[in-house]
Nucleic acid binder design. Structure first.
Length: 331
DNA sequence: AATGTAATAT
DNA sequence: AATATTACAT
């Protein structure tokens, strides 16, 4: 339920003149399941923002001491577009922090940043959303067990903001109604798992293990399997125009399976750029978080992270493009 | 305890 | 329309 929500896909823009530190930041943010864009200078970053102000949810900007360009970002971008901006610096003396905070920074973080600090930066997006009605914030959503308390707080805050503004902010995101989308890639993996198990042995739990997709639940696989078998029955019926049911309970004809694979692969949508294959570092079980044992990213993961995918969907893409279509109900 | 199925909900 | 959830049987 609520404790399983995580704002995956939050689009973070990082600006730092140190390119190697940009890499570090990128890795950390990706581990948080955020989408990352990086720039090593303020000028290019600014021009990017001006063309893409709807696609940036949060800015993390280094404190460029000599020129104070970061102040410029704050005053221009933050106030103009309402994009929350976090300043980071290795120098954290109070007067500096004060200056940036009073100029609109959402937070001031001291380098080097740990992932624990970056995990929670999404909160700034929620807090800042008031008055940002012109922005379309299509944030991909999915499930995680992290930040139980803060997540519920933030969604509660969001709720009240939506009520106050009466719909102007409703397109921000509602973390509570996220659903898995069976992309063709996901479906292919599902099919591969089913086929490798064989029609008799393909049961949700085994399929789930073979697929190795993070956050995918047994129930989701079961639901998909149910529909998949419906699909098989239906297509085998139309194939043979069969009024005499075959001896086996499930039509195990390879042709329908094959056709399914062909159909899906004919729509060759490989998703390399938008992170559907993104590897995230999450642990799996949902248990009682009130027990006080806070889960850190990856610390309870029995599996090596790189063999897992993470399912996500990008709301920029319309579902019809990525969703697997059952051919028996086409049209 | 996990699964299959159908019905129902979102 | 697609996915999630539920209820019940196995």
């Amino acid at each position: 339920m609520d404790q399983e929500l995580w704002p995956s896909g939050l689009r973070v823009l990082v600006i730092d003149n140190n390119i190697s530190y940009l890499k570090v930041m990128e890795e950390l943010l990706i581990k948080c399941s955020y989408k990352v864009t990086t720039y090593n200078n303020v000028r290019e970053a600014m021009s990017f923002i001006y063309g893409n102000e709807q696609t940036v949810d949060l800015i993390i900007c280094d404190l460029f001491f000599p020129t104070e360009d970061s102040l410029l970002i704050l005053q221009e971008v933050t106030s103009k577009f309402g994009i929350p901006t976090v300043i980071m610096s290795s120098n954290g003396d109070t007067s500096t922090v004060m200056k940036y905070i009073t100029n609109g920074a959402s937070d001031f973080l001291i380098k080097p940043l740990r992932i624990e600090e970056l995990k929670n930066i999404w909160q700034h997006v929620f807090r800042k959303q008031i008055g940002a009605e012109h922005r379309k914030c299509n944030i991909a959503q999915h499930i995680d067990q992290l930040s139980y308390r803060t997540t519920t707080e933030a969604t509660a805050t969001l709720d009240s903001e939506i009520r106050e503004n009466n719909g102007t902010v409703t397109d921000i995101l509602d973390l509570r109604k996220s659903r898995l989308i069976w992309t063709m890639q996901l479906h292919r993996q599902f099919i591969a798992a089913v086929n490798s198990l064989g029609p008799e042995k393909a049961v949700p739990k085994k399929i789930l293990e073979i697929m190795k997709v993070k956050h995918l639940t047994r129930e989701q696989v079961a639901s998909h399997l149910q529909k998949y078998r419906l699909h098989l029955r239906n297509s085998s019926q139309t194939l043979y125009k069969d009024d005499t049911p075959s001896s086996s309970s499930y039509p195990n004809n390879e042709s329908s399976i094959l056709r399914t694979q062909l159909n899906s692969s004919s729509n060759s949508l490989y998703f390399d750029q938008d992170g559907c294959m993104e590897i995230a570092d999450y642990s799996l079980p949902k248990d009682d978080l009130s027990s006080g044992s806070e889960c850190t990213l990856g610390e309870r993961n029995n599996y090596s992270p790189e063999c897992f995918q993470d399912f996500r969907w990008d709301s920029d893409k319309q579902g019809s493009e990525t969703t697997y279509l059952w051919n028996f109900e086409a049209e």
